[in-house]
Design a protein around this nucleic acid. Structure first.
Lengths: 341, 341
DNA sequence: TTTTAGCACTCTAAAGTAGAGATTGCTAAA
DNA sequence: TTTAGCAATCTCTACTTTAGAGTGCTAAAA
């Protein structure tokens, strides 16, 4: 879609229309654009331009005698070519930083604070997910007997993060046996990423003097120990903000987004998929893979903890103040990266 | 409030009124009770009785020309003296058991499944919180170096449960030092409940050859290590079910409950406070300490993992099918206890 | 060729009106 | 003590009306 060939007038009309609609949530008429935005043209002329924009599929009319509202494509053009990023004030920056810092270095608390601050200052839904260990480089593993038939498996990666999994081992292995196994694991696996380990664990433990039963146990549990499945956490704060938006006045619409938020799995997968890309990602309306949020836009950015990364962002109706949000999400991600390093 | 002196007719009218209202959510008129419930009395007589019940504060009229709806006190009488518990069918039992079992022995998954099944079969909000370690008897502690300046503290209690806390220790202590510390901790603390440890840790580590810095670190962190603060998890599933209820048609009402669900802290405290009482607890409307759920009722039961216990239950509008819910919550708690033992 | 004024037309949203229906409380009779 | 009957009250729904906003088209102006 080559929309670069919009005339400068068309661009200005589209821009003003979107700006106004974002503020008011009401369909925008030609008179408003002509007068309030002082374009030096009559409403009739604006009307003609609006007709052109509608033919291009960038704006549409809810009904005959209403003004126009932007379509997803309209927002897309706006975001790609018309939008001027609105910088944060110093006090805003300070505020964000202070909240993000409130959890010390405890990553789960920091992430919860982050989703909270994002939700609060955007008045939308703030999102944060825990970092992907998948690309983390293993520094050390520990196997700690916790109770009968259970051990804690501790996995530490290079950036100073670690996590633990409680694992069932039906039969009791002797402490010595476990210690030896631990040694071999560390010897053979440290320095590799968790992803590499998961994919190759079977071969790497093939020619050893280890108990085959123990090896099998760990090979079978490889997706639990060395991947992010079931471990990735998502924080979503500000559901109330969404409820207040007129876009969610309809019960059905509200219901579907609430269900998606509760389910989490699908949402985690979607948000997580953005953690590898650099910079801000904006996904508008129909561009979202999840049906239930096809009337929403999502603005995300990745953050880093050493070598591994996660994603934060916001979700809200497509009618959102993109120019401000980009700055907010960007700066929050930066603050988060700073805090966690 | 001695309401036992209700006449048998008053009791029957109240009972029928509540039954009908629970099903329809519409104010119930005297005609309905007279005809549908075949009380052998005219509507005029019922009307007189209803006036009496209203004077006692058990039912009320939304407006002059409407039927009556139960008040919180009305529900209370109903629950205390009129309600007949409705037993579960075999297939219902089977279904609950199968879902609760789906997580194997992994307690977090089992609890998440439990809140899900509760939400699903009641069409309300299912709740489950993790068990209180507070009363658990320590079997063993492990200190495992995880990264520079960080150790994993693993606390295992008698019932076979364990949990881990990632702890910051600014300065580096030698592995030997830590191992010695670990030995002393186990020697002096195992056999005590976590609550006892938290309250007396300071004295118990007083006369030792341990590094005072290390001791101070652990004494300072005692509420993190030996209590449930920040560790108790809550699962709440079925927000969508609440949204569908007519009681939450009003945006404000909906908003306040959503906020409470998101905040979690207050809710955890409230639900957790019920984990010590045996049997089903029903809290109706205004009896709830949290303002935001004063139009809701809460039905809970504790479950056990060995010696330590947690709580599950449901939240919904005061107009809920108590007689069925009691059986559901009761049986689910029993299944959960079975699964986790 | 482009822009604008003017106007008929369309549609929504809000306000007002009317009528049906439900339920009550009271009274007087059974 | 119970019931039939009835006026009174209030809600809810449907319908009508009105005001207002905005469009699209046409013809004139620039």
């Amino acid at each position: 879609m080559a929309f670069e060939n919009l005339t400068s007038r068309e661009k200005r009309v589209l821009q003003n229309l979107i700006c106004h609609y974002i503020q008011t949530a009401d369909p925008v008429g030609s008179r408003v654009i002509a007068n309030k935005y002082r374009m030096g043209l009559s409403s009739a002329t604006i009307r003609n331009t609006m007709q052109d924009l509608e033919e291009m599929g960038l704006i549409s009319q809810p009904h005959t005698s209403a003004g126009r509202i932007p379509t997803d494509s309209g927002y897309r053009i706006f975001v790609n070519t018309l939008l001027k990023q609105e910088p944060l004030t110093d006090s805003e920056k300070k505020y964000i930083k202070s909240i993000v810092n409130q959890g010390g270095k405890r990553i789960d608390i920091v992430l919860s604070q982050t989703s909270k601050i994002l939700g609060d200052i955007t008045s939308l839904l703030g999102i944060s997910i825990s970092p992907r260990f998948e690309e983390g480089v293993l520094t050390r593993m520990n196997l700690v007997p916790a109770a009968e038939g259970k051990i804690f498996v501790i996995v530490a990666v290079k950036s100073g993060l670690a996590r633990s999994i409680l694992m069932e081992i039906e039969s009791d292995f002797s402490p010595n046996e476990l210690r030896h196994f631990e040694d071999v694991l560390n010897e053979r696996l440290s320095g590799l990423t968790l992803g590499q380990i998961r994919r190759t664990i079977s071969e790497r433990l093939a020619d050893t003097d280890l108990s085959p039963r123990l090896v099998k146990l760990f090979v079978d549990a490889r997706t639990n120990i060395w991947s992010d499945k079931d471990t990735t956490q998502i924080h979503a704060t500000g559901t109330g903000n969404l409820i207040k938006q007129p876009e969610f006045a309809d019960r059905e619409t509200l219901l579907s987004i609430i269900n998606i938020l509760e389910d989490k799995k699908e949402l985690i997968e979607f948000i997580d998929s953005k953690s590898l890309v650099e910079g801000i990602i904006i996904t508008i309306g129909n561009e979202n893979p999840i049906d239930e949020i096809k009337n929403c836009s999502v603005v995300t950015s990745k953050y880093q903890v050493g070598k591994i990364s996660g994603t934060i962002g916001i979700i809200g109706p497509t009618r959102m103040p993109y120019s401000k949000l980009i700055s907010i999400v960007e700066y929050t991600a930066k603050s988060l990266t700073d805090t966690l390093s």
